[in-house]
Design a protein around this nucleic acid. Structure first.
Length: 378
DNA sequence: AAGCCGGGGTC
DNA sequence: GACCCAGGCTT
């Protein structure tokens, strides 16, 4: 196939050295990709850019050099290393997958797309990527970059998500038997650096001459997609409770759902509202947030400190501006309060004191790091 | 098929 | 500051 060799030549000329890649040159002299590295990088790269992943990948490999090391690790340590990377269910599935491969497959990843698809956290994209990149077997690798590049190349005007099927078919036809892994990475690199969503650098594209989208002038509007829903705004309060030694009270979140299994500072629920509530004191925030759903009303006053023998301290005071943070499907305004507390509080199982030098290493999602910065603890 | 899951980049 | 990006799991 003419077009695949054109792109592979471009890839060889523009190859990016990345910590998880085995370059075409090294493969030619017999080096085999490391399936553990390929799998880890592909999971990290789900919905995440190369720039954001690089340092996380290096730290993971340094700490857990092989799959068995990761399988034998504590989930809490994995969540700490993952903190800040987002989509935390990936970290939980990563740990589960490592244990599964270690026990069921003796630590060796299966090399068929079908078996890979059964692993936790491995979907159609990742299964195909591991098959092609780690094992050099034919597979149609389709991620967002591939959807964009191929929908433009063939001027496919079918909107997402229906577009997925024709793109998968086309990718299967274009992928060469010879270097399926390099070809998949070439298309994805092209999408990330040349055939970008906005202002594509068509002049640098090895496929410019045969790009049907560009020929007809519709390339920048591809791929077509459904209009997206507006995000609601939620409001809530977070409470930074400190001791004299600077230790901050942290709590472990529920294992599933939003920021599942991660750590947090205690706080109210985050309640949807069309306008900011006119709350001033911490007590007012607790009442307002607790009034959100009728069932929890009775518990409203104790909600932020559930399980703790603690009333809302008189000294709980506002710190600076509210923290703003945007999640996948809502905006959040988080009012941060702080206070200092005497020693001797009885803590339940899911709470602990984190000293200043330990705080940065906790499994804290970005929103709570912002809150701790607002309270000048980080 | 549609909703649930972060964080970073661009303009 | 508004908007864009987009893989796996769950329902």
């Amino acid at each position: 196939m003419q077009e695949s060799s054109e792109l592979l030549q471009w890839y060889d000329r523009n190859h990016r050295e990345l910590p998880w890649r085995t370059s075409p040159v090294r493969q030619k002299s017999g080096a085999k990709p490391n399936a553990y590295h390929v799998w880890l990088s592909e999971v990290m790269l789900q919905q995440t850019t190369v720039a954001a992943v690089k340092d996380y990948f290096t730290r993971f490999i340094r700490r857990w050099p092989c799959l068995e090391d990761l399988a034998n690790s504590d989930l809490d340590d994995v969540l700490k290393e993952w903190a800040g990377l987002g989509y935390y269910s990936r970290a939980r599935n990563l740990h589960k997958c490592a244990q599964h491969v270690a026990s069921v497959f003796s630590g060796e990843f299966p090399s068929s797309e079908k078996e890979l698809l059964d692993l936790p956290g491995v979907g159609p994209y990742t299964a195909a990527a591991i098959t092609a990149i780690a094992f050099n077997k034919h597979a149609a690798v389709v991620d967002g970059n591939v959807e964009r590049v191929l929908s433009r190349l063939a001027a496919l005007e079918t909107p997402l998500p229906t577009l997925k099927r024709p793109v998968k078919d086309l990718m299967g036809q274009l992928t060469p038997k010879d270097r399926p892994g390099d070809f998949a990475q070439a298309v994805m690199d092209l999408g990330a650096t040349v055939c970008t969503a906005r202002n594509p650098a068509c002049g640098l594209c090895p496929w410019m001459q045969r790009c049907q989208g560009r020929l007809t002038g519709i390339h920048e509007s591809l791929p077509r997609k459904r209009p997206k829903k507006a995000k609601p705004t939620r409001y809530g309060a977070a409470f930074v409770i400190k001791q004299k030694d600077g230790a901050v009270l942290l709590r472990k979140r529920h294992a599933k759902g939003l920021l599942g299994g991660m750590s947090e500072v205690p706080g109210t629920d985050w309640r949807v509202s069309s306008a900011a509530p006119s709350c001033v004191t911490a007590q007012e925030w607790v009442q307002w947030a607790g009034a959100g759903d009728g069932a929890a009303k009775d518990e409203a006053l104790s909600l932020p400190f559930k399980g703790l023998s603690l009333e809302m301290p008189e000294t709980m005071s506002l710190c600076a501006e509210p923290v703003k943070h945007t999640f996948t499907h809502f905006h959040l305004y988080l009012q941060v309060f702080c206070c200092e507390l005497e020693y001797g509080l009885n803590l339940p199982e899911n709470c602990w004191w984190s000293l200043p030098n330990a705080l940065a290493g906790e499994a804290l999602p970005t929103v709570f790091k912002k809150a701790l910065r607002a309270a000048q603890c980080l």
